[in-house]
């Protein structure tokens, strides 16, 4: 979402090309999330698990917190994995052009 070419390639301007509109999408998402969270006020769930005092699947805001924190940590952990796992694009090909053997 960092760069935007205001439709200069196609000639045609698209709604998403304007930077302000991308922000609008983000705020709309926040609004939708607030609504889904609010749903927990109106709908009482029955806890199936006793673990965590029944909060896990019956308590307020469990799924939103789990979804957000899970996805957030997933990305940050994966980012750190790059330090160990990432190689250049031709890593497996280089050998043939007079590398190790």
């Amino acid at each position: 979402m960092a760069h935007h070419d205001h439709g200069k390639h196609g000639g045609k301007s698209y709604w998403l090309d304007r930077k302000g509109n991308v922000a609008k999408v983000f705020y709309a998402l926040i609004a939708v999330d607030v609504l889904w969270l609010a749903a927990d006020f109106f709908h009482k769930k029955k806890a199936e698990f006793d673990a965590w005092g029944g909060w896990a699947d019956g308590g307020f805001g469990f799924y939103p917190v789990y979804g957000f924190v899970g996805a957030f940590l997933l990305v940050l952990a994966a980012k750190q994995m790059r330090r160990v796992l990432m190689r250049s694009e031709d890593y497996y090909e280089r050998r043939r052009d007079g590398g190790a053997s």
């Binding site: 983000f26 998402l29 926040i30 939708v32 999330d33 889904w36 969270l37 749903a39 927990d40 709908h43 769930k45 029955k46 699947d57 799924y63 939103p64 917190v65 789990y66 979804g67 957000f68 924190v69 899970g70 996805a71 957030f72 990305v75």
Partner: peptide, 20 residues
């Protein structure tokens, strides 16, 4: 319950992506 919980999980996962 199922519709609400699944939507919560997914939409908040989307929020994490957008925030990142």
């Amino acid at each position: 319950t199922h519709v609400i919980t699944q939507s919560q999980l997914l939409f908040f996962s989307a929020l994490a992506f957008a925030t990142l």
